[in-house]
Amino acid sequence: MLILLWFLWDASSAYWYEFGISQLWAAEWYPYESLYGLLPAIIGTVWAMLIAMLIAVPCGLAAAIVSSEILPVSWQGWIRLGMEMLAGIPSVVYGLIGLWVLLPWLQYTLDLLTGHNLLAAGMILSLMILPTMMVMSQDALRLIPIEQREAAMNMGMNWNQRLMRVLLPQAWTGIRSGILLGLGRALGETMAVMLVVGSLDRVPDPIYNILEPAQTLTSRIGREMGEAAFGSMHFSALMACGLVLAVTAICLSLLAQQKRSFV
């Protein structure tokens, strides 16, 4: 891990020395004019992650509750198998599904100029992290001892109360890990996002406009890595994007660890 960080730092140090940390909130990215602002891609990444979580967390949680608390046990194995298979599908396949199904649908139903936008990226990402979310939540729910459920039932709690007062608080640690893991995947996903996000290096206008093409850190690296000459400032700037991603991902997993050991 340290070696990886050191490598990213080493490769991007030319960029940090030249431009400094202020590039994180500079809005212009024009490699040929030596302008390397990271802000548009950072905003894009944050939006894509937020949208993905807003869809995937409620859906994944609901699916987990339905499959582990409501459906008969014999179905659970099948549902789990399906989810695990979903998790194993290569991301480019999701990207292609997005390209052929989601984008035209978005374009026509919302009457947009183009379906390539942050909303599409977030929706594809949510589909990709849904299985992780669901499997983790399901595990957490299943780990709750049967005695707890029986005790809750003996106290005369109805189903709603049991869910909100007993099951969810008990399972919260596992669910939180699922959320953070999902965030990590959403953060690092490249291929599917690159195909649908539109790759336009511009801060959304207004900033909450998620229906215009935008760029994420990963899609920028994916698009531009091939052309950046090794050792050039452009290359260094792309490495800096990588460093920002890596540091964020490490923070997320540290957060997940900490919660797990303390709670």
Binding site: Q107, T114, H116, S199, L200, D201, E212, P213, R223
Partner: peptide
Amino acid sequence: ASIISGSNNEEQMIVSRS
């Protein structure tokens, strides 16, 4: 610019879809 495309195939697809 409203969108950035890569290969000729990609651009051809965006134009024909719009």
